[in-house]
Design a protein around this nucleic acid. Sequence first.
DNA 1: GCAAAAGTGTTTGGTCTACACCCATGA
DNA 2: TCATGGGTGTAGACCAAACACTTTTGC
Lengths: 229, 229
Amino acid sequence: MTSNNLTPDIFSLSIPALAIDIVIFTVYKWSLYLLLNQRTEDWPEKWKYILPGWIVRSGLSLEENFDNILQNRTGIKWVYKEQLYTFWDVNRDPRWHVVSVTYYALVSSDLFMQNVDLTKVHIIDYSRIDEISIWYDHEKIIKYAKQRLDWKLEYTNIVKNILPQEFTLSRMQAVYESILDTKLDKRNFRKKIASLNILKDTWNLDKSTNRPAALYSFSDNELKIVGIL
Amino acid sequence: MTSNNLTPDIFSLSIPALAIDIVIFTVYKWSLYLLLNQRTEDWPEKWKYILPGWIVRSGLSLEENFDNILQNRTGIKWVYKEQLYTFWDVNRDPRWHVVSVTYYALVSSDLFMQNVDLTKVHIIDYSRIDEISIWYDHEKIIKYAKQRLDWKLEYTNIVKNILPQEFTLSRMQAVYESILDTKLDKRNFRKKIASLNILKDTWNLDKSTNRPAALYSFSDNELKIVGIL
DNA sequence: GCAAAAGTGTTTGGTCTACACCCATGA
DNA sequence: TCATGGGTGTAGACCAAACACTTTTGC
């Protein structure tokens, strides 16, 4: 193969289709959940769960495609997202050759509850992920997304995208515990968070519990690299 | 937009072209280098440096496309690679709408010297990267790849892909120092590496220096997550 | 007054850092 | 014999982990 063989030839070089698939996490009540679609009637294997996703439309930007797909497949208007990996497999989708750009996304449970369309999307307890039937390689993508989420939780302030605007330290700790599936020491956790100077006290109180708890919010909106745990 | 609007329509959904671009790092003598192509005569801005890359051909797997492009653009037959990011920009390549899947790659200087075709590829001292003229957004991609490389060096045993099969600890330390652009303490470095149990003594000696130095190799071929620095 | 979650310090062990000299060989 | 890079240990600072009781409120 010489350099000349690489001369662009739009026909042999095109790929048939490009898709976006989104792994959406949320923490609802005290557990980590995943938002999954189910295959519709006219598809084979209709009972299987599948990541929200679709083929992209040319002429729109990636952002526009993402937002359309997100809204169409879940009802949700906005999530925090990061690109995860681009999968490529001629045999991946039996219907056609698809390259899939995957994202993982975080949504706080209040934002999620406002917008989600539960006729379109199912909320699945992450701890039951191995018990359900997931279409093709989407389970692999989910596990990869979870790894990335774990890492980002430990080393960045990304947790703010799962928490509501104002939250108690106990709530924040519970988010870490449910996602990382560990128990954390309350005093050490609070010391660590305090030392990072990433929160500000709102001086509001959460009175829903017995003893009212101080409500905090993030003092900074950028994604920061900070060793949290 | 309703669900019906998402019904696949292969014509409006196709994208024109998909490319692979590769950021290749090597450590040559005592510095970090980058392997870049230069735009050829018939292209505009022909003097600018550009990442080795090309449009993918359908019908081949991603691996095959990667290997073809790597070999065509650099002469090199094999590199260690990891996917970096997928860029999407209708205005990215003025010739057509391109989605680019980028990789970063590492190659040891001996493997590199065996195979590289220096008529195709230029080797650029990374510390001079800001002095040269780089095409379109490839500089951004390079900086992003360097960040990823720095991180991977600190937290994994990825350095083995830049080192020859057998190497001295001083050589290994020099690779860290040149890529991360820091000075490391010799004793602390050796203690840390020893504590990680990732090397084995080959009982061979490097006699090219005055006092012969012990030669080590990695005891394990998998990529491991280990806090190295 | 009691149940339930919030909030608060100290001690200990391990890890990271700084630092300087002797050794083996080639020329 | 001297120049060159290879190889080695210790002390102090800092950080992470373990651990239990008091406080505030609703009922």
